[in-house]
């Protein structure tokens, strides 16, 4: 039965035994790549953000399982990366101008530190689960990634046909 327009339909999630080892490693790589890129991303954390976007677009067509995990890895690191970028700029401002360390800055530093720790811990857990062929849903990001990676899209009906050159 074709999916009704108003009801979102999702493809069934794959079971661990159905997922080949290659896909599991690609999915795990999405998370581990972030940690490798953090080193390259310092002092400007934007580089790992770019790396994760590139990784996502290269791997999303491999399978829904890999699509889900690479999307989840990319989305979940966005808030942390953006917070890190803001922290770098704020700190540079304090270092080079007359701006002082105030309570907003202290609150923000701790918020960023905790976000990074959470991201790191959950990134490792997700990578391990992905390697085992498991679907692992992070709060908020898991649901968004699932709804994008597993959504049943309308089949493209327009067929592309090669034609001879126009005469005249």
């Amino acid at each position: 039965m074709p999916p009704a327009m108003s009801t979102p339909f999702y493809h069934p999630v794959p079971q661990p035994e159905e997922i080949p080892i290659r896909e599991r490693e690609d999915a795990m790589g999405a998370y581990l790549m972030m940690f490798a890129a953090i080193g390259a991303g310092l002092p400007l954390p934007v580089i790992n953000l770019i790396a994760s976007i590139v990784y996502y677009f290269i791997n999303r067509s491999h399978s829904r399982f890999v699509h889900f995990h690479s999307l989840q890895a990319m989305l979940s690191q966005m808030p942390t990366s953006i917070m890190n970028i803001i922290l770098v700029f704020w700190s540079v401002r304090i270092f080079f101008t007359d701006a002082t360390v105030n309570d907003y800055y202290v609150g923000y530093i701790w918020l960023t530190v905790i976000a990074n720790i959470l991201y790191f811990v959950y990134g490792i857990i997700s990578a391990v689960k992905a390697r085992r062929g498991r679907m692992y849903y992070l709060m908020f990001f898991g649901k968004i990634s699932y709804s994008i990676a597993f959504a049943v899209k309308e089949e493209k009906t327009r067929e592309i046909k090669n034609e001879p050159p126009p005469i005249g």
């Binding site: 202290v106 530093i109 918020l111 908020f140 968004i144 709804s147």
Partner: peptide
């Protein structure tokens, strides 16, 4: 699903605000 995503977003935002507020009012530095 949409509603559930929004609820998660709200929870995460509240968590962020709570952490920020905690360290704003009790700065450990």
């Amino acid at each position: 699903m949409k509603k559930s995503i929004l609820v998660d977003l709200l929870k995460l935002s509240l968590l962020g605000v709570a952490i920020f507020a905690l360290f704003y009012f009790y700065p450990i530095f």
